[in-house]
Amino acid sequence: MKEIFRYGLVLALICMIAAGLLATVNSFTKAKILAQGQKEEEVGLREVMPEAFQFEPIKSQTGEILYYKASDKEGRPVGIVFKAEGKGYSSTITTLVGMRDDFSISAIKILSQNETPGLGARVSEEDFAGQFKNKKDLNDVCAITGATISSKAVIEAVKKKVEEIKGLIKQ
């Protein structure tokens, strides 16, 4: 019986020291990690909507970001940027989409995916993602050979989200 208390005490002590150490590391990497995330988002936004000067997040009532309103230097709206998610072959593919006011796509960027390397993972490459530029009708985007599921996932996700956003704007 006495042993159990000793074991518990030793383990608790080790855990306490570990927790203290992690709290310290966390306290000075937290700001940096947050800043990295924001920087990445900013870079992504600019990439899909190069003509825009600033981006204003539009939030739903529950506080999540629905889309970003992009405007040029004079503050005139040029379009919106939003995220589209679709289930690919082995992961959920998240795509950032820039859409101009005339509902044509300015560009897309794959934010995260975990598809098969060399096959589905190629959706992030310019050969595929570049096809979306200046398109209104996404039916003539060519899928990648051997990666139909991943390609379709991106196309369908973008299509669906475009319709959703159109509905939102009309309101």
């Binding site: 030793v10 383990l11 570990a18 590391v25 990295q36």
Partner: peptide
């Protein structure tokens, strides 16, 4: 300092701490 019978959980706590530090540093 580590009692023989609970050495594995003790090792894992130490290892997990280092892994978490590595992950936080890498993310930052």
């Amino acid at each position: 300092f580590i009692p023989q019978r609970i050495r594995i959980p003790c090792f894992i706590v130490v290892i997990a701490t280092f892994v978490t530090i590595t992950e936080l540093m890498m993310k930052a």
